[in-house]
Amino acid sequence: MRQIILDTETTGLSPRNGNRILEIGCVEVLNRQLSGKNLHFYINPERDSEEGALAVHGLTTEFLADKPTFKQIAAEFLDYVRGAQIIIHNAPFDVGFLDAELALLGLPPFKDHVIDVVDSLQMAKELHPGRRNSLDALCDRYGISNAHRVLHGALLDAELLAEVYLSMTRGQNSLTMDLGAEEDVSEGEGKLELAPLAEVIVVAASEEELGLHEDVLNQLDKEARGSCVWRFEPPPPEATAEAA
């Protein structure tokens, strides 16, 4: 599956107030692997940024003055995202701006060019109800370093979101109820089907690592003045059942 992690920076909070997109960052994921074939544009929005937005992204009117307009990059951008599943954090915000830019060019809405759009913010809220689910909060939760993120940048944020999304969805298998037409569903005879698990790679400890582990256990024995619990193996299930 081809997925595109997408983020934008804008001159303000609402396209209805004439605000425009001034940066787009896209990260390509193929079959859950980063492909390295990313796309990034700085865009001349043909207007100044609002003060609050400028404080977030730091992209001045002077810096953007010689950059292409959205009209000039639209074809390349749409070719890149076409036919992909799009992952966006707080998707309604970015999609609203993309739709506004496309409408100015007389083009169909953004979702008409892609397979579908997944809102990773909504996904995070369902996974972590009642908790903060900003991109920074999710980076902290999943152990993803964002120390280099001083200002918001579309490509940087898309790269961080790609790592967050892969972490959020790693190891989760879809559980579906397969109810065939030939089965009597009234008697609850549906079949549960699990998606296949990814291959598990087992790495055995080396002799050196086993020796270091033994040293740690010996130290624990010394401190406990006996054998530490890590040297005892639990009884087999059969023995536990018999004792009960």
Rank of each mutant, 00 (worst) to 15 (best):
Asn133Ala: 11
Asn133Ser: 12
Ser134Asn: 04
Leu135Val: 15
Leu138Lys: 01
Leu138Gly: 05
Leu138Ala: 06
Cys139Tyr: 03
Cys139Glu: 08
Asp140Tyr: 06
Asp140Val: 12
Tyr142Asp: 03
Tyr142Ile: 05
Gly143Pro: 04
Asn146Cys: 12
Ala147Leu: 12
Arg149Ala: 06
Leu151Ile: 08
Ala154Trp: 08
Leu155Asp: 04
Leu155Val: 09
Ala158Trp: 07
Leu160Phe: 04
Leu160Asn: 02
Ala162Asn: 05
Glu163Leu: 12
Val164Gly: 04
Val164Leu: 06
Tyr165Ser: 03
Tyr165Asp: 03
Leu166Trp: 02
Leu166Gly: 02
Leu166Gln: 11
Ser167Ala: 15
Met168Ile: 02
Gly171Asp: 11
Gly171Lys: 04
Gln172Val: 13
Ser174Ala: 13
Ser174Met: 10
Leu175Phe: 05
Leu175Asp: 00
Leu175Pro: 00
Asp178Phe: 08
Leu179Ile: 10
Ala181Tyr: 01
Glu182Val: 08
Asp184Met: 10
Val185Lys: 04
Gly190Lys: 01
Gly190Ile: 01
Lys191Phe: 00
Lys191His: 04
Leu192Ile: 14
Leu194Asp: 01
Ala195Arg: 07
Pro196Val: 02
Pro196His: 03
Leu197Val: 05
Leu197Cys: 03
Leu197Met: 11
Ala198Gln: 10
Glu199Gly: 01
Glu199Ala: 13
Val200Glu: 10
Val203His: 03
Ala204Gln: 09
Ala205Glu: 05
Ala205His: 03
Glu207Trp: 01
Glu207Val: 04
Glu208Ser: 12
Glu208Met: 10
Glu209Pro: 00
Glu209Trp: 04
Leu212Thr: 02
His213Ala: 14
Val216Gly: 00
Asn218Thr: 08
Gln219Phe: 12
Leu220Tyr: 07
Leu220Arg: 12
Ala224Gly: 00
Arg225Val: 09
Cys228Trp: 01
Val229Ser: 13
Phe232Trp: 13
Phe232Lys: 14
Pro234Asn: 11
Pro236Leu: 15
Pro236Tyr: 08
Pro237Gln: 13
Pro237Arg: 14
